[in-house]
Simulated assay, not measured.
Amino acid sequence: MGPLQEPVSRFIQSADGLKLHALDYAAPAGGGLLPVVCLPGLARAADDFDSVARVLQAEGRRVFALDYRGRGRSDWDPDWRRYDFDVEQGDISAQLGDAGVAEAIFLGTSRGGLHTMRIAARRPGVVRAAVLNDIGPKIEHAGLLRIKRYVGKLPPIPSMREAIALMRLAAGAQFSDVSPQEWERYARLTFVEKDGKVLLRYDPELAHTLDMVTPEAEPETHWEDFAALAELPLLAIRGANSDILSPEVFDEMARRAPLVERLVVEGQGHAPLLLDAPTIARIADFVRQRP
């Protein structure tokens, strides 16, 4: 096997005219294995999957990691109301179609896992196996309220060094096992330095998607969509300190999905960063079993 190709940025135009971005890690010559599609969390981007993508690519997989509208290198939407599951599903379908991906193993973190459940339920045969990173069919309300407190909100930060310190201060209790090198890597995946300022890598208007999350609101449930994954090979990952995926829901997922494999990432919360070697190795082992 020769040297692996660096990921290529693919851009397409959405149905309503936005430029959408994805990272395409080409399979080595003579591949033919199922590709892996990576779908990030609410305010995250395709680059989150770079470490795991390079390992999977080295094992012969094409990996296709998407930026939703308003995140990463995709255009921001002038109307925040279109940061919506149905609109994003249309974007995902268009991006997969443009890339020639008809079926794949899906790796979804948080919101990306919800998208994976929805795709499995609405487009049978597209999802051949799935890895759900710290997301389940019932989302803990306390966790959503915590996320609402920080999404789209950023105090003035003069440098990346201060950004790294801010992340460790805000999330250090949930992510006690994350190394200083991983904190720096994650901060650089979260913020960008531009014109002497540290900025978010997503549209702050995404915060409006959580407007309906109030202390009185009913918890979200997605058991009907999850049922579409129940007969498929499935790896469910939970951060040991997660406040989004509870141990009880994690257990119920195993009861309803007889083929599920489970991994608890110690010392991490919502959602495991997918930067540590043991977690990446477990995902690679799961993928390896699906030709």
Rank of each mutant, 00 (worst) to 15 (best):
P7K: 14
S9G: 12
R10T: 13
I12W: 04
G17F: 01
G17T: 12
L18Q: 09
K19H: 14
L20I: 01
D24Q: 10
D24K: 00
A26W: 00
P28H: 02
A29W: 06
G30V: 04
L33D: 05
L42C: 13
A46I: 07
D48V: 00
R54T: 11
V55K: 09
V55W: 02
Q57E: 09
R61L: 14
R61Q: 04
F64A: 06
L66C: 10
L66V: 14
P78A: 14
D79W: 09
R81S: 15
Y83T: 00
E88C: 04
E88V: 09
L96N: 03
D98N: 11
V101N: 10
A102F: 07
E103A: 15
A104Y: 07
G112I: 14
H115Q: 08
I119D: 06
R122K: 14
R123E: 12
P124H: 10
G125A: 03
V131M: 05
L132M: 12
P137R: 01
I139H: 03
E140W: 12
L144T: 05
K148V: 10
G152Y: 02
I157S: 01
S159N: 10
M160F: 02
M167S: 06
G172I: 00
S176A: 15
S176H: 13
V178P: 02
P180E: 04
E182H: 11
L189C: 05
D195C: 07
K197S: 06
Y202L: 06
D203G: 07
E205T: 11
A207E: 07
H208S: 08
T209R: 05
L210N: 05
W223L: 08
W223G: 02
A228Q: 00
L229Q: 07
L235I: 07
I237T: 01
G239W: 07
D243P: 11
P247R: 00
F250H: 10
F250M: 07
D251I: 09
E252P: 03
A254T: 13
R255N: 10
L263R: 11
V264G: 12
L274K: 04
L275P: 00
D276F: 03
A277N: 10
A281W: 07
A281E: 12
R282I: 09
R282T: 11
A284P: 01
Q289E: 05
P291R: 15
